[in-house]
Design a protein around this nucleic acid. Structure first.
Lengths: 148, 148
DNA sequence: CAAAATTAAATTGCGTACAATTCAATCATA
DNA sequence: TATGATTGAATTGTACGCAATTTAATTTTG
């Protein structure tokens, strides 16, 4: 009953629900991120800075799967808002070190309620959540393997 | 061993691997889409047009989870390349009808090999693929429910 | 040690995404 | 049936996201 074009149907793609789901979830962060004046990209960047306190743009990019073309303007914006400091490494002037400021530290408290609120917004069971999480990391992992 | 900030860790988010995975897969389409001069957004748009032959921008947006702000320039580009025609509906002048052209039809043949090539690039088993697919649509479905 | 290669950020240019607004067409209803 | 509400696209403005290039610092090697 299927013709040769079936595999080109949108409903037969894995990438499409991934793409759509990602966008829809990011969109749903907005109401929770607006009050603390962060975009989604700025939020995940702050998440890493909150954990590391100090990190290079390179390391940040590796963790977030983002390059300097994306990160440079994001980090300049975060510096402008006072949440991070940008300074060259003394060891190697090529490296830009991102440091968490006091204001950035304070913002962490305000962000603390966001994961819980978002969790409620994704209507799947804890087991399904875990399965989804693991499969996504499996795919991501398989990508990192075949990078020369 | 965990502190109150654990839930703000990037590794404890479901959204992050979703966001990263989506971007990485889209990036991996590029080598296959470049030869037929389509971007990923143009490709998924063409997928729907190939299936429907004729569809309004509204319906296209509902299927792709994209609004007119994104679709208008994409469709103008596809028209410019000769793959679709844009014309107002006679029934209701508010509706813009997207129609597949002969060139667009021909492009379908060239795109036929892409899903197979991409499939090989995602290193998970068919069962895992199915599970992932279903979970993603479950999340997407739960989003559509709570839209007023 | 000097030239060549590599590396990390920044820059440039293009194409999304999406919120918010505008505009024109159609619909609902008083 | 006039008019207020709704609808579908387009427009505007902001923020990514990434390929490709540039620049400066460091490392490799001849």
């Amino acid at each position: 009953m299927g013709d040769k074009y079936d595999r080109l149907k949108i409903c037969n793609q894995l990438c499409f629900p991934l793409y759509a789901c990602s966008k829809e979830i990011v969109k749903r962060y907005k109401p929770y991120l607006d009050p603390i004046d962060l975009t989604y990209t700025q939020y995940i960047t702050m998440m890493v800075v909150w954990e590391e306190k100090e990190i290079t743009v390179k390391a940040l990019g590796d963790k977030l799967f983002l390059d300097s073309g994306t990160l440079t303007p994001v980090l300049k914006k975060l510096e402008q808002k006072g949440y991070v400091k940008r300074s060259r490494s003394k060891d190697d002037e090529r490296n830009l070190i991102i440091t968490l400021t006091k204001e950035g530290e304070d913002l962490r408290e305000e962000a603390l309620s966001i994961p819980g609120k978002m969790g409620k917004c994704v209507n799947i069971s804890p087991e399904e959540n875990k399965t989804l999480y693991e499969l996504l990391y499996k795919v991501l992992g398989s990508f990192e393997e075949d990078e020369d």
